[in-house]
Computed example of a mutant assay.
Amino acid sequence: MTKDILDKSSDRAQSLYKGLVVLQCFSEGHATMTLSEVADTVGMNRATTRRFLLTLVDLGYLSLEGKRYTLTPKVMTLGYNYLSNLPWWQLANPVAEEISRHLSESCSIGVLSRDQLIFVARAQGPRALTINLSPGRVVPVHTAGIGRVLLADLNEDEQRQFFERNPPTGLTPYTVTEVPKIREALVEIKKQGYAIVDQELEVGLLAIAVPVRDSRGKAVAAIGISTQAQRRTKDELVNDLLPVLKDGASRISQLI
């Protein structure tokens, strides 16, 4: 990722790019890292990496204890600033919570930001799932129901470019990684108006999602239900959950 950034033309602020790459390398499973670990992850030398790390400490986004750097709660302000500028999000969150209560399942809302699927709202159901899909979480787009719905709304050229930039990788034995098969599924998703993903993000996780469209008909977000595969069948997702999801998506669309 760093090399791609550094290959950009000279009119880019490469120092800003590098600093953000350093910040983004702190993720789930890597919440605390040493200078050497960060340098190896981002592919920069230790001296340069150290300058960026110390700058982020000064700005309050990282803390330094001994030799380990750790994210601070201040990074949450970046996500909040984004969400606070989405007027519809404040009104959409209660819709997700209502759907979750009604179906006794976990409900999420996600958006496609460049090539990343980012969850912006989450209503946890009464049964906890092993995977964490809380706001701010990023997962591979092609492995999630919400991601599939948003990919299906792209035109053929946009889809082709997306998969060229992001070759699919397998997370479970069930993850589809062949681009032609994924694109064939996207055609069907576009036609039927919803996506079902069966254990492609995590074994035992079954999901269904529908698009949330703006006044121009563009899918600006998607809302979905995640459940345990042993609790629900695909037919139950379509017959019992889909109508409720579609109603919720329609209500959110009216707020945009």
Rank of each mutant, 00 (worst) to 15 (best):
V111M: 14
V111F: 07
S113H: 13
Q116P: 00
L117P: 07
L117D: 05
L117F: 13
L117S: 05
I118F: 00
F119N: 06
V120K: 04
V120H: 05
Q124F: 01
G125Y: 12
G125I: 13
P126Q: 06
A128G: 00
A128V: 13
T130N: 13
T130D: 14
I131C: 10
N132G: 00
S134T: 14
P135K: 12
P135F: 06
G136P: 13
G136R: 12
G136I: 12
R137A: 12
R137L: 00
V138S: 02
V139I: 15
V139S: 06
P140T: 03
P140K: 06
V141N: 06
V141I: 10
H142V: 03
H142A: 09
T143V: 15
A144V: 15
G145T: 09
I146T: 15
I146S: 09
I146Y: 04
I146R: 08
G147A: 08
G147T: 08
G147V: 06
R148V: 10
R148C: 12
V149N: 02
L150P: 08
L150I: 09
L151W: 08
A152Y: 04
A152N: 08
N155P: 04
N155D: 15
N155Q: 03
E156N: 08
D157N: 12
D157K: 14
D157Q: 15
Q159S: 05
R160N: 10
F162K: 07
F163T: 02
E164N: 09
E164S: 07
R165S: 13
P167I: 11
T169L: 14
G170S: 15
G170H: 01
L171Q: 13
L171P: 04
L171C: 03
L171Y: 10
T172E: 07
T172N: 05
P173C: 03
Y174T: 02
T175Q: 04
T175C: 06
V176G: 00
E178G: 00
E178Y: 12
E178R: 15
P180G: 02
P180L: 07
P180Q: 08
E184I: 00
E184Q: 15
L186Q: 08
L186A: 10
L186M: 07
V187E: 14
V187D: 08
E188W: 00
E188S: 12
I189R: 01
Q192G: 00
G193L: 02
G193R: 03
I196K: 01
I196A: 02
I196E: 01
I196T: 09
V197F: 02
V197A: 10
D198N: 15
D198Y: 13
L201C: 03
L201I: 10
E202K: 09
G204T: 04
L205V: 15
L205P: 11
L205R: 02
L206A: 06
L206N: 09
L206F: 09
A207W: 00
A207Y: 00
I208N: 03
V210M: 06
V210C: 05
P211V: 03
V212R: 08
R213W: 00
S215L: 09
G217Q: 09
K218I: 14
V220C: 07
A221C: 10
A222M: 07
I223P: 10
I223E: 04
G224I: 11
I225N: 07
S226R: 11
